[in-house]
Amino acid sequence: MNTVGVLALQGAFAAHEAALRGLGAHTRQVRTPADLIAVDALVMPGGESTTMSRLLDTSGMYPDLKARIAGGMPVFGTCAGMILLATEVLDGRADQYSFGAIDLAVRRNGYGRQVDSFETDITVSGLAEPFHAVFIRAPKVVTVGPSVEVLAAHDGTPVVARQDHVMVASFHPELTPDARLHEMFLQHNGFTIEKERG
């Protein structure tokens, strides 16, 4: 059975794991290189990208994860996860890691601080009904490369995007009970979902 990893260095990993399990996926929390070997895909959650970046370093996972992503392992990054996957980070820290896995430039906290955080319904291509999106100190996409497919936008700015096996969202699909984006990620990458319940 395919195992979907959730990067569990810091942040909203528990909520992502619950969403994936709700879809019937077999999951594993990933904190070390040994955990990484055991997974076939990885969700990178929201949290603080500077914290995760540092822990990617101390855990010794950074080179392995970079190689796995370059080698085609499906990844889905939300908020801080999106920042880690982008090719360019504006307003981040100079020593912050980026995997450069999706051709986007993103501005850290581009939508502002917590007092500017918001929620709104967005239209996602491939989903019949709107998706309720929760933006928390969210990164903002500044430029989009030619090979990136924009799946949803808010006020003209892309908020869900995909490039081959790499999918990102600037908001938090793990905070709402709606698992359609997780489902889209798994299906796009050929994961079979066995719904055990409901």
Binding site: A8, L9, Q10, G11, A12, F13, A14, A15, G46, G47, E48, T51, C79, A80, Q114, S117, F118, E119, V134, F135, I136, R137, H172, E174, L175, T176
Partner: peptide
């Protein structure tokens, strides 16, 4: 409420 409660989710596992 999701926006207010959500930030705490982002701090989980952190210091």
């Amino acid at each position: 409420m999701q926006v207010k409660r959500g930030l705490a989710e982002m701090m989980k596992g952190g210091v």
